Simulated scan of single mutants.
Amino acid sequence: MKPVALTCGEPVGIGLELAVKARAALGTTLPFFLIADPRHLAGARIAEITTPADALGIAADTLPVLPHAFAGDAVPGQPDPANAAGVIEVIARAVAMADQVSGICTAPINKKVLKDGAGFAYPGHTEYLAALAGVDRVVMMLASPELRVVPATIHIALSEVPSALTPDLLEATIRITHAALIRDFGIVSPRIAVAGMNPHAGEGGTMGRDEEKIIPVLDALRACGMTLSGPLPADTMFHAAARTRYDAAICMYHDQALIPIKTIAFDDGVNVTLGLPFIRTSPDHGTAFDIAGRGIANPSSLIAALRMAAEMGAARGND
């Protein structure tokens, strides 16, 4: 059995306290270890380890920590640019040991702090992980037991979506999702639902013609043997009965995907990066500087992310 590697993320956010809470909740039922500076975990019961395998022999009430020295202290809610380089190094270190773990789970980072403190040149975690892995294109999935959604376009203005949504992008998104459902989720014959862009999926062109570039992509992929439905009206895709008819939903833009999953699974949604040569999950929340150190942060999403990393690792044969 291989443990999950959990990166510390921004050390003055809620990531470290959530790691401690997750260990208390999971014990040894799901082995994981934290890569962090032990100085930042004052008051927590921890055990320093030297290799990922060492995490398997630690008592259930103790958090295994693979030490990584940071330049600064960690005062909850008070970002220190001196720690930015350490945050980035921890992510790279986790990737370097990907063959020794079942998966990587990343605690939240703050991009502005990393940019100000270390000149971080990436829009976020996902792009940095893709660069470390040497992968040109990855896909973001938000997942819960009730629903998996994949936005084809992500952090762009709604007005930019029609031009950004090219047939090449849509095809790549569907192919990466289809492959991941087989390899990482153990679904032998994935069923994928694809949303339209416009109300009523355009209703034959009377409410928009963007679906005209979606339909040929779906037809071509169906000819390759994929089970695809759509383009579908997004307003009828996410009720309970509709969700039984597919394994993942491809959406055309950010809110079309994230509103339903955050409505259905706000506390236990998981961010999954598809298309990497290793498993990567993360909780679906940020650093929450405003509540850091107060002991009130909810660990549900991190626990779900750790569990999903372990399950996906097992499906991929990494356990």
Rank of each mutant, 00 (worst) to 15 (best):
A220C: 04
L41Q: 09
V101Y: 01
P277M: 08
F120N: 10
A96T: 03
A304G: 02
P31A: 12
L41C: 11
I182K: 12
F33H: 10
V217Q: 07
I88N: 03
V149K: 03
Y253G: 01
D219N: 09
D319V: 15
L158K: 13
Q100A: 13
L34P: 00
T29H: 01
D61A: 06
E127F: 10
D210W: 03
D136P: 09
G43C: 05
L34G: 02
D267Q: 15
S102W: 02
G317R: 05
N318D: 00
I215F: 09
D267V: 14
T166Q: 07
L258W: 04
A25K: 11
H239K: 14
G77S: 11
D184K: 08
D168L: 13
A133V: 13
V20S: 07
A172E: 14
I296E: 15
L258M: 02
A309Q: 01
A47Q: 08
A74V: 05
H68G: 11
F238E: 01
V95I: 12
M312A: 00
I303P: 11
G124K: 11
K112M: 00
G204R: 11
P299H: 07
L302H: 11
H254P: 06
G286T: 07
L41Y: 07
M252F: 03
L302C: 10
A24Q: 15
I174A: 02
G43Q: 07
A42E: 12
D255Y: 09
I291K: 06
A69Y: 00
A220S: 09
S144A: 14
L306Y: 00
A53G: 15
A240R: 14
H285I: 12
R148P: 07
I88Q: 02
F120C: 09
T287Q: 03
C105S: 15
D210E: 14
E212L: 13
I182P: 00
A47E: 10
S282P: 00
A220W: 01
G313H: 04
D235N: 03
L26M: 00
Y246W: 13
G27D: 04
R45T: 13
N298T: 08
T7M: 09
L165V: 11
L34I: 00
A19K: 07
D284G: 12
C251L: 12
V75M: 13
T227R: 07
A304H: 10
D210N: 08
L276K: 01
P11K: 12
E17S: 04
G313D: 08
G275E: 00
A98R: 15
K112I: 06
T244P: 00
R148Q: 03
Q100G: 06
D235Y: 05
P108N: 00
L66D: 12
L228F: 03
A241Y: 12
Q256K: 05
G103T: 01
P31M: 07
I261Y: 08
A133F: 10
T206I: 13
E146M: 10
G119W: 10
A304R: 05
E146C: 06
P151N: 11
A297V: 04
A164I: 02
R294V: 05
K2D: 07
G27L: 02
G186K: 01
P31H: 05
A180C: 10
G293L: 11
G134D: 07
A55M: 13
V270D: 09
I104N: 04
P145E: 15
V194M: 07
V135M: 04
